[in-house]
Design a protein around this nucleic acid. Structure first.
Lengths: 246, 246
DNA sequence: TAAATAGTGTCTGTAAGACAGTATACT
DNA sequence: AGTATACTGTCTTACAGACACTATTTA
């Protein structure tokens, strides 16, 4: 038998010589550009020795146990390498692990999703390494992605759209300061439906996660109050979802 | 340098000879016995070669890549080994990974939480192997558990209590069929506060996740309707939390 | 008939949505 | 002044909670 004995059957205590899974981290990076929710995809190398050559995938890669102090630190590193962003909203989405998902062997990936403000330059591949692209979320979900990234992206979209119904998450998709009409547009883009202005404003202001930070000039029309989020670590949670009556 | 080169710096494509983390799965198994929420803890072996000898811990252990087809299959295996339960409500809680959490090396654990009906025999250690105990949730959270299991248990409790406010999760803590007064008691035990009977019944019956299954006799008083959940895979989600007004 | 428990009806307060109205900017 | 946008006030409606009431069982 070529393989090392399994953990449960390991002999002496402290014997760690059994086979270990591959461990990776993938990041689903969302932003809103124009009137669409977008997600960052990278192209896998064309090298035929790599799995899924030339396919689009979520940014990610192996955990480096000599550089990454934790899974979250690894996710932040990936995000920084791809976008230059250092302090996003970052939330663990879940992990996907099994014998079949990577042809190189039993692997477990840890998926995190990040919300960032739209990057200044939206076309260039930041580090000049692998080509990357901000793809509209719905189109990305239709592409045949590498590994099980299609499933992971679908889960991320479901989580995001679900949480947008009752949290302040969209505030992290905007550069500060932002105005309430701008914030409402982001909610509407993510949810894909219109919201009532008056109810929206009441909800946002009553829940107290926003801080006034002075008027912001508009290209035309009346100037609007600018806001920033008080606590960038914890999003606000509303007691009801939008349109609970439908 | 004794260590293998890091993943990002790996030379030829397909070189997988870098160091890999340890990969484990831990399960937070909840049930309600009597008037308290309880969680299953196991005692770690007294062997000094093992980390945290003699300390209480969450049930779990290394992923066995030759036996476990997936992370979820591994979690189900652990649960079955400890409790004999095969089809619980099982939900991924999250993963905790880093250089420091296990003295044996960089490790990543995948935590799942399970809701099961109270076991018939609540005292014995099921498989006769490691001693285990159903501990009241709040007391378990106060014990100094092995590894970072205290933090993981706290996260599980927070997730459970949070979700109980707006989902049908407590239905998975009862053996079927159950009555609405029984279900309400479980909600109250988990939440730690009383709920209004009328509002509770309206919410449960209107959301349509329950199926009548015939009257159940009570030891005294009027017989109550018995119910079972329609879909054991997906809990119902209510549009509002309880007591949103407070 | 009394006690115990299951289940229902009715009222009220709160808050979200609808929508019309007012305010403030620029041209 | 007119237009474009930001913001507010008022009305209506839905529904959760409070709580008293009725129903069905056993002793």
């Amino acid at each position: 038998m070529p393989r090392r004995s399994a953990p449960a059957a390991a002999g002496p205590a402290g014997d760690l010589s059994f086979d270990r899974p591959l461990v990776t981290v993938d990041v689903i990076i969302f932003t809103v550009v124009g009137d669409a929710l977008r997600v960052l995809l990278v192209r896998r190398p064309d090298d035929a020795a790599e799995p899924y050559p030339g396919r689009w995938a979520l940014p990610g890669g192996f955990v480096d146990i000599h550089r990454d102090a934790s899974l979250q630190a690894c996710a932040l590193r990936k995000l920084r390498e791809k976008t230059g962003v250092a302090a996003p909203y970052l939330e663990q989405l879940g992990s996907w692990g099994g014998a079949r998902r990577d042809p190189r062997g039993w692997s477990a990936t840890h998926a995190w999703f990040a919300l960032i403000a739209p990057p200044a330059d939206e076309t260039a591949s930041p580090q000049g390494t692998a080509p990357s692209e901000w793809v509209q979320a719905d189109e990305a979900a239709r592409r045949r992605l590498a590994f099980d990234h299609g499933e992971i992206l679908a889960a991320a979209l479901q989580r995001l759209r679900g949480k947008v119904e009752y949290t302040s998450l969209p505030a992290f998709l905007l550069p500060e300061p932002f105005t309430l009409p701008e914030l409402q547009r982001v909610y509407e883009v993510v949810l894909g439906r219109a919201l009532d202005k008056s109810a929206f404003r009441k909800r946002m202001l009553d829940s107290g996660f926003l801080e006034e930070v002075g008027l912001v000039d508009a290209p035309s029309g009346r100037a609007a109050m600018g806001y920033r989020v008080v606590d960038r670590e914890r999003p606000a949670i509303f007691p009801r979802t939008f349109r609970s009556g439908e």
